[in-house]
Design a protein around this nucleic acid. Structure first.
Lengths: 291, 291
DNA sequence: AGCGTCCATACCCGCACGGTATCAACGGCC
DNA sequence: GGCCGTTGATACCGTGCGGGTATGGACGCT
């Protein structure tokens, strides 16, 4: 009952993603024959084929291969997280890494940091900017200890969360827009909009180029290239040429703290507690603390 | 930025648990010198000491070592789960393994299995008995795909859950007990009981020998050695000499399905759906489905 | 049919892991 | 306080495994 080696798992993931031994070997920086042997060894160890070397010159995943692809990814994340978090803890000035999406802190980050840094004897916090969809992955594989992200997460494997704010949504419109004078809007008003709408969640704009950060978005809105619906806290970053109008019937956005359940508990717990406390004094406090 | 090897993680966990190189080496089936070297290599890789080789002949964990111990355990669980789940999927008659605590199925298991097996084209289910506290660990490290357990879990890392039943609690009393004639009880009535009380959750009886399964418990109750408070569904297993009396103010027990978020989604999802459906037709349906 | 692509096999090499022997430091004991 | 036992570190050596190069074999394309 010998366990698999991480190297084999890495190799398998490469092959399963490329579906091509040569390219996978190149990506891994090794030659192709050792890769073939490693996969064969892995298949022997697993008791069955993982890849279908089709006669029609195509490599496809078997059912078991699909299982292993998923499992191996989480396992590799876990060992990567182990090394990264330990390295961070071993370094003398061990800092807590907080991943945020630029402009996506709900106007809360300053208060949270102030509360955290007021407590004595805790590691300093390092802010790390991340692409919107990348936040959970950062926490999962140990590149960050905590994240501020919008809930619910698409994939909450191995993560714990706590709600902080429930923010109503506003539409961001260029100043001259036909709806810019309105007191409030509904989603129906925006449904007629010919311009692409954009919500900050999915990481990439549905029909256009991905929007990297809040400044980029503001720019695009102010020049009339798009309109967007976003949590109310973006008002703090609104440019001169951009008008924010509440969208009354849009479902509110929930901002929360995310951390790995396997993290250094003392500092992470302190940060989460500070975040919750800071959020309670905020205009849009989350309704109730579940636990 | 080379990742750690699973072997090193296994070695480190052994040393961290034994706090003794010799015993750890013996447990690992290797000699002591290679183990010392492996730990040193790991420490070099992590950028700092993980163990404090005290001058007073004691090995202790550093802060970073404590972090790694925790992280390495979850990482090892993850790779073990990967191999186990893949092995299971590769075997032709790939069965879904469901872990239950004997007698802890809330009287629901039959209906769930019937509903699941009615669906065509799904893998068969294999029931695996587990000690009460062991259920989440079984799912986490891949020995089981699903479990029926009482919620909330003490440690939900990497697991997803769905509530099924909320059961009121009953006291199990020997027939001749002074409270056996009562229609209902409160916890205050039981507070005076000299006999040890026992709830099935924590895995070991507080003051006595651990109770292995529901039959064992029934036996102890029927001979007057203990009384117990348990979910109402244990009535189905009640022996002749045991009387069940509702405890009106005991907080109800929640039974749920537990599975790993990284599991084979199709079959696991089907089973969860069947379980939820079966639970809805049960006397004590859970109040609402959150998602 | 011939060539190119792509995975598998054969063979060789170097290194790293493991074993044995030994050292060094510390504690306990008489 | 000297001696021994314990325990982790070091030295040295062999071997097995992982990786590289060369080549084979099967299939598709033209």
């Amino acid at each position: 009952m010998d366990a698999a080696d991480v190297r084999e798992l890495r190799y398998f993931v490469a092959v399963a993603e490329e579906l091509h031994f040569g390219r996978a070997a190149e990506r891994l920086g090794i030659a192709q024959p050792p890769l073939s042997r490693a996969i064969q060894r892995l298949e022997r160890r697993m008791g069955g084929p993982l890849l279908e070397r089709g006669g029609n010159r195509r490599v496809e995943l078997t059912e078991a291969g699909l299982v292993l692809l998923h499992e191996a990814r989480t396992a590799l994340d876990a060992v990567a997280a182990a090394t990264r978090r330990t390295r961070r803890a071993a370094r003398p000035g061990a800092a807590l890494v907080l991943a945020v999406k630029p402009g996506g802190d709900g106007g809360l980050l300053g208060a949270v940091l102030a509360a955290y840094e007021a407590e004595p004897g805790l590691a300093p916090v390092e802010i790390s900017a991340a692409r919107p969809g990348e936040l959970p992955a950062r926490v999962r594989d140990g590149r960050a200890d905590l994240a501020l992200a919008h809930l619910p997460l698409a994939d909450a494997r191995g993560l714990e969360t706590e709600e902080l704010l429930v923010e109503p949504q506003v539409a961001m419109l260029p100043r001259g827009h036909r709806l810019a004078g309105r007191e409030r809007l509904s989603t129906a008003d925006l449904a007629d909009e010919p311009l692409p709408r954009w919500t900050p969640e999915p990481g990439a704009a549905p029909g256009g180029a991905p929007v990297a950060d809040i400044g980029h978005l503001m720019h695009l809105v102010s020049v009339g290239r798009m309109i967007a619906v976003a949590p109310e806290s973006v008002r703090a970053h609104a440019w001169g040429g951009v008008v924010c109008v509440p969208v009354t019937d849009a479902s509110p956005t929930t901002l929360g703290v995310v951390w790995s359940a396997g993290s250094r508990s003392r500092e992470v717990a302190a940060f989460v507690a500070c975040a919750v406390r800071a959020a309670e004094h905020h205009p849009h406090a989350a309704p109730a603390l579940t636990p």
